[in-house]
Amino acid sequence: MATKTFWDWVGAIVSNYGQMFLSGAGTTMLIAITGTIIGFLIGLIVAIIRTIPVLPQDNKAKKVILKVANAIMAIYIEVFRGTPMMVQAMIVYYGLMEAFKIDLDPLTAGILIVSINTGAYMSEIVRGGIESIDEGQFDAAHAIGMTHWQTMTNVILPQAIRNILPATGNEFVINIKDTSVLNVISVTELFFATKTVKGIALRTFETFFVAGVIYLVLTFTVTRILRFIEKKMDGDDSYTIMASSSMPDQQFIKIRGGKHEHRQWLHDESDQK
């Protein structure tokens, strides 16, 4: 019998252990998706709280509470961005078990760790997104009587979120890859599954080659989908001129393109159809 080639081994590994890879990939995606979404929400909340303005006329209690809250959030961000997730995983999983007798199952612990870790990064990303919004947007919202919460949810965050979508997508892709460190607390994600397969098949190179291809397919697909969502969110650059009592002769004309073409239409109505 001829010796097996590289592709023979790959084929054999895929057909024998495909199910294990798939379930590992599923767990990886579950943790990455849940962790990114929860982390994103944490980032939004932290950023909203950190941007609450303190006015001279506010009462003392509010000022003190905000100071304490801001200090806690600053520490949270520093600690979780400044330490490796692998260390965080060990501390949270084994630490909670030893110190508080809280016995989380590895998957729950994994989601928890990725969420709070992503939350720390997202807090900074959202803050950057908010800071990139023109002061005038805040002024205008406040001037019509919106509260900080209303200003954030109706005006600032919708714009900030659009601006930080690429960075958020990046976090998601990083999470897909970084869930691999959760194998240290025995979460059966893709990397853990791969190690298990290697233990049975006894072929390190081919087994991890398969894992690499799966990671690449996951991240590539996710990147494409996010790009598509970004495009969708930007909308098409057109709007409809409505019938108007102040401009009675113009009815339902669809304007294409941006400001430039629009102006052309204003000056040169007959040419545009």
Partner: peptide
């Protein structure tokens, strides 16, 4: 303050329309 601001309109030099709306 928010109630008070709602009763005084403000028009800015830079318009400051809500860009997302």
């Amino acid at each position: 303050v928010t109630k008070y601001r709602a009763k005084l309109g403000m028009v800015f030099q830079q318009f400051n329309l809500f860009d997302n709306k």
